[in-house]
Design a protein around this nucleic acid. Structure first.
Lengths: 708, 708
DNA sequence: TTGTCTCCCTGCGGGAGACAA
DNA sequence: TTGTCTCCCGCAGGGAGACAA
């Protein structure tokens, strides 16, 4: 049940027609095999940008890129083809002992069949439909992630726990006492237990972790800007993970020993395995932002559907270390040629010579086709970006399809379709509502790859067929299928929740078209659904802008996009009170994705028929913190005191209707901020930290010396 | 010059006839090649028990033992012979980064010639004469080693520097000041610099290291019982090493990464190298006490000269971790058989099945012939132990030489003949003066292997030919040639010095025979010499006994053994004031070892003609701390307030003459204590530390976790 | 609601002499 | 001479409410 999934602005809701009988446990028939580390925690730590190939899916492995990654360019791989078509045999989740960095070990086996298809130019989707959202399970609803503030990491005092997070994730305290406190025990990725004193004190009262917190910060070498995440798994156990800020990635200081094993030392064995068509392993660091050397086959295929030529403008989702770079990742293709015509003739790896619009970043002057998205007036994405434009099955999104396009169909990304815990982060959706063509659109779209839930739900509002939704999801313009997945939990900063609400398609679609200037953008990523939604409330536009404090934890809510998940949860809560608390049958969604007549479709069909009265009906049934939730919603979706319709930060619905361009700018701004949530890296507080907490830093330096 | 070699009870003196023109630098044509670590420091850290094969010498390598050492007993080595005859190609000195443990990488190459000789039963000494004491150089006279007390390692206060040590090793302070202090910078094995504040304060005044000391203790994870050693090398630079107590060997917690490389992972490559007769490397940990898998060829040969049979009693120098086990290492041979008749037929490795007299220790029930020394009434050693018995060249020390004995000649141990910094530790010498036969003798002799200087000088007093000295040195009874070498510096605990005094042979030999009940035992290890000695003083017996404090640092002085080195130094000081302070030409000794008519022989001839008036003449010329030295000697060789003739701990000369048995018991006791100097491991202070310094220990635990 | 600040207070530990072995 | 003890004192840092954003 979604009982515990309640969080601040987005709510996990279930389709009432789906079966919720199976309890949600932390194990199950998971797609990824049980590994050394807790899977939910792994995904929580990996963050929403993670893109993991699925077991059983078809991918392309680029030895050239692999050799590029490891410094040894002299390594032999001469007899390897530039593109090795593989089947993913296994994906194992791991975490570095030294720095808690998560990584995955991907086992690949060369697949002649895929290669054959590739050579024959055959377009195939090879029944990956079932694989897309399939087999995902094990929700971990009680979770929060908070970027550490300077106070959190200072040596004076402990960790300030967001109230809702504490109430959601921690055992409840006896508030009758003068200073309620308890001991929390949380297990990290390595199974290490950490004890904290959780106390509720201060004037005004707040939740704090005191004793034990400092030790944790020091041991983990956390600095302000890093993020910690707590999650309560099914049996009530607490898990504890960290996400380091991009700048101070210790991974560079401590080269991952296990990862290293797969990157540097075993290139020869990889080559040998490929030549003998045996299984080989590749290390996959989801937080490393280098070009991936494993790309889903269909993404690879689709990227080549474009005709890249000099002069073509493009956008790139540039996952730089510095999150701020993210909003400037457009460029111009100035040539198409082999990177290494001698050793890798015909390789698509970085076959495009590009010039970036801004020359600040020391970016590669070469990119691979699948890394970028063409932009420009004539580019394909606009074909479905125009509101109301219904795309039909088989229509090609690109204008110049000089390469066979994969057949339409339910072909989602192999790299983990957003499945759950997607949160409403609607601002970038304004691209859809404000098609300014070319660059702006593409810029938006490229950003959207982080939030596939939005895209999907967006499309669900446009297309009349669920399958079209999937189809569109696979269009290059929508991220070339390489959707960064928060497979299990896109844990969001601060008060954000871990699930989302699918958006109904019928009335919603109409509404969407009617209000072509504004888009209601419910979160959709996890394919959860809610039958009823407080739709009236949803239409309140709201936006939270990250304020001056860079490490503040805020939710970004698109103006005019309905922050309905809260209500939807309430609604669902009301309707499914009898279900077990933590059980949500995602598996069923996985097995029956987007089938007409399925439970999910029912939700989609009815989702947008929000009834505020339903919301009112259920507000009393909310178990904990319901007063706050209700008051928030009554105040126009206040989030932690911020009104979601606050004119200061958000635009009213009317504003957006008339000032879509302004809204778009908001959207642009948002994206940078949102990226910062993922890579919490405010420069200022980090600097403050390094000066105000010299002692702790010194200790870290000492440890660094010791460890190296 | 030996100017700076002065220390408390033993003195480095030079033969006045030798050339002292070449300054003693820390480099030179050293036998061991310059390696990553400071050689003097390495040897200082390795301690006096170290036995390193010499470059160029012939050794026997036992793959069987190698496989035994590494846990992988399934490793292939089936095609290797049990005895691999090798030539030592190189010896490289290293130190573990993690724990400062010293080790050596010995490069061996299979040598057909040696093998051929072995197969033909040929006895050879193959010109190793020159190699024995050859090429040793680079004295590092200013050095001291102190076992850390609880106070030294406590968090309150610093390190109490023994006065003499401070005066000898550290730059002198301006004692005019109220609290004289200076900054010391010392370099450890890895080249890391450590800064300490050296202050002379307190009432009464004492030398202390304060600021910086705690950091050093914590970084190195020192506990009370560990020992630190400072040495001042030629250019005045300070070196800083540590010797950990045996019990808390961190080496077990941190398996030596580099060492590991040579023990576990490369057995296959070793086998391959041997089969192709190429160079291979073996890790050699001088402080690990397991049976050595590399044994000098001549030692191997001589050990097989004995006819081992069931019922034979033996003694074994048991280098257990726990030093206290050292005095009970006798046993009975109960069988001779192959350890592994299938895989290693005919192997001498642990071919003797033994039963130990005490069954406490979990010792091997099998030993190798070269590990033990036969004992019993009929055993050979007594043949030259009887005072006055002159052995002639070619006489066999063993009674049943069923194996060809190596030809007589100047064939010292390949494993580092004691060269310098041997200190007078005469107690075990009483074996010679009190021959009780069999077991007692052998026990003494086996102990003597630690102090080959004594043996050599002892013999020099007996034999009329220098070459006989070497010959005797090679007899099995005198340590089977496997002499633990303090090649460069046997750094002694506390106030002990780092050089020794050769003992004249002519008059000394006479004297020796005259006073058959007591032996004057000047230190001899470094082949330094003094022409004149305050011999009257020397004959004062003195002994320091380790008092109740287990970590106290004391010198053990045999009653009735003359602590003459002090005076000898004074004498020499007087005579050679014009020489440069730190220059001692050891090289010349190395080039001309024991040649008749050489400078050294002159010394030996005249050494015992001590003149107390000479001592009196020079006392005023001693540069620093001379008053103390003089007063000490005048008081009957007081050492730090302990009278060397104190009846409480030592026996007077007369006592020893009439109570040699008692003296022998003293000797037995001494040896255990001396071992403790090498492996300073008092259990009590360590326990105290772990309770009183919990914080520091916790930090270590943290680091352990981080480092593993 | 929560980030930051300041204040309080404890305890660690460095540094000194006292004292005794 | 030096190991141990105790005392002094500075300071790091944990923990609390105040205050404001």
């Amino acid at each position: 049940m979604v009982f515990g999934l309640i969080d601040l602005n987005t709510v996990n809701t279930d389709d009432e027609t789906s079966s919720f009988d199976s309890p949600s446990s932390s194990s199950g028939n998971l797609e990824l095999p049980a590994s050394a580390v807790c899977m939910e925690l792994w995904h929580a730590c990996a963050g929403p940008l993670i893109s993991l190939p699925r077991k059983g899916s078809a991918v392309v492995y680029f030895p050239q890129g692999h050799l590029e990654r490891i410094s040894d360019h002299t390594a032999l791989a001469s007899d390897l083809p530039p593109h090795v078509f593989c089947r993913v045999v296994d994906v194992k989740l791991h975490a570095e002992e030294a720095n808690d960095e998560v990584y995955a070990q991907v086992s690949l086996v060369p697949d002649n069949e895929i290669e054959q298809k590739w050579k024959e130019g055959e377009i195939e989707a090879e029944g990956e439909e079932e694989d897309t959202v399939g087999a995902e399970k094990s929700i971990t609803p009680h979770m929060f992630c908070k970027t550490l503030t300077a106070s959190d990491t200072s040596s004076h005092g402990g960790f300030s726990v967001p109230r809702r997070a504490a109430e959601d994730c921690f055992p409840s305290l006896d508030y009758e006492q003068q200073r309620p406190s308890q001991e929390l025990v949380a297990k990290d990725l390595h199974g290490t237990l950490w004890k904290f004193r959780h106390i509720y004190r201060g004037q005004p009262r707040r939740h704090l972790l005191t004793t034990g917190w400092s030790a944790f910060v020091n041991k983990k070498k956390l600095v302000s800007g890093d993020a910690v995440l707590f999650l309560r798994v099914a049996d009530g156990e607490l898990r504890l993970g960290i996400r380091r800020a991009a700048q101070v990635k210790i991974g560079t200081a401590f080269p991952a020993p296990y990862c290293q094993q797969f990157t540097s030392s075993s290139m020869a064995s990889v080559a040998h395995a490929i030549s003998t068509r045996r299984v080989f392993n590749i290390c996959y660091n989801p937080r490393a932002s280098s070009s991936e050397i494993i790309v889903p086959y269909h993404k690879f295929l689709k990227s080549l559907a474009h005709s890249f030529s000099a002069g073509m403008r493009f956008k790139m989702h540039f996952e730089a270390e510095d999150a701020t770079e993210r909003s400037r990742c457009s460029g111009l293709v100035i040539g198409v040629s082999d990177l290494d015509p001698v050793r890798w003739p015909g390789s698509k790896w970085r076959c495009l010579v590009v010039r970036w619009d801004d020359m600040e970043g020391n970016r590669h002057t070469r990119v691979s086709p699948w890394e970028i998205e063409p932009s420009g007036s004539a580019s394909g994405p606009s074909s479905f970006l125009v509101p109301g434009t219904k795309r039909t099955r088989g229509s090609l999104p690109t204008t110049k399809p000089d390469f066979p396009i994969p057949r339409d169909g339910n072909e989602p990304s192999d790299f983990g379709e957003p499945s759950r815990f997607q949160v409403l982060q609607g601002q970038e959706i304004f691209c859809f509502s404000t098609p300014h063509g070319g660059q702006s659109q593409s810029q938006c779209l490229s950003k959207m790859r982080c939030f596939p839930g939005f895209r999907t739900s967006m499309i669900s509002g446009v297309a009349s067929n669920i399958r079209h939704l999937q189809e569109d999801s696979g269009t290059p313009s929508a991220g070339t299928g390489f959707v960064e997945s928060s497979r299990f939990c896109k844990v969001l900063q601060g008060q954000e929740t871990s699930s989302s609400l699918p958006y109904g398609r019928g009335p919603a679609a109409n509404q969407f078209q009617e209000n072509s200037g504004s888009v209601r953008l419910p979160n959709y990523g996890s394919h959860w659904s809610a039958q009823g939604q407080g739709y009236t409330q949803m239409r309140h536009s709201a936006q939270l802008v990250q304020e001056s404090s860079p490490s503040s934890v805020l939710l970004f809510q698109q103006p005019n996009s309905p922050p309905c998940n809260l209500q939807a949860l309430h609604l669902h809560q009301k309707k499914r009170e009898t279900s077990s608390r933590d059980s949500v049958d995602f598996e069923r969604y996985a097995r029956e994705p987007f089938q007409s007549g399925s439970a999910l479709e029912d939700v989609l069909r009815n989702g947008s028929s929000g009834q505020s009265e339903e919301y009112n009906q259920i507000e009393s049934s909310y178990p904990r913190g319901s007063q706050n939730l209700v008051s928030m919603c009554k105040k126009g979706c206040m989030l932690f005191g911020f009104s979601l319709i606050d004119g200061k930060h958000g635009a009213s619905k009317e504003d957006n209707l008339t000032e879509s361009t302004t809204s778009y700018n908001h959207g642009t701004k948002f994206l940078a901020c949102n990226e910062e949530q993922v890579h919490p890296s405010p420069p200022v507080p980090i600097k403050v930290m390094s000066s105000s907490c010299t002692k702790a830093r010194d200790m870290h330096a000492v440890r660094d010396v010791l460890l190296t």
